[in-house]
């Protein structure tokens, strides 16, 4: 009788521990997935780029460190040379197939943007010129 009860306790404990581990794993996956969400990086870098362009003057060359976003884009099998695009006065950052975030800037300048291949491909370069 006592042996059977001991057996019940052991199975109960194992189920209890397994359920706890499953629960914690799901929680950790949720937190990590939220923290590494591509859309969060898209918004962050689109807004940073817009602020950089707004505060720039013609003739300036600005570097934006986008290491996190580039790593995310590589995970999503994206071409890292075309993550940042400028269309009119809107900057768009796209790190995944279904994503993309656009934000407008008010500085009426011409902006050329490209991936800095000389610096371990971790930075984007913004070249600010007069609007023709």
């Amino acid at each position: 009788m006592i042996r059977n009860k001991r057996g019940d306790i052991l199975i109960g404990d194992v189920i209890f521990i397994v359920l706890n581990l499953v629960f914690l794993t799901i929680l950790i996956i949720f937190v990590v997935s939220k923290a590494n969400d591509a859309s969060r990086f898209e918004e962050l870098y689109a807004k940073q780029a817009a602020l950089i362009i707004d505060s720039a003057k013609p003739g300036m060359i600005m570097h934006l460190d986008m290491k996190d976003a580039i790593e995310k884009a590589i995970d999503e099998n994206q071409n890292i040379a075309t993550l940042v695009t400028i269309n009119g006065n809107t900057v768009t950052v796209k790190l995944s197939d279904k994503g993309g975030y656009s934000y407008s800037f008010f500085n009426d300048v011409n902006v050329n943007v490209y991936l800095d291949t000389l610096n371990n491909e971790q930075e984007y370069v913004f070249v600010i010129n007069e609007l023709k």
Binding site: N87, G88, N89, S102, Y103, F106, D108, V109
Partner: peptide
């Protein structure tokens, strides 16, 4: 606005 090189258009809105 033009003289100060400000573009108030917001295509994202």
């Amino acid at each position: 606005l033009k003289i100060c090189k400000v573009n108030l258009k917001t295509p994202d809105f």
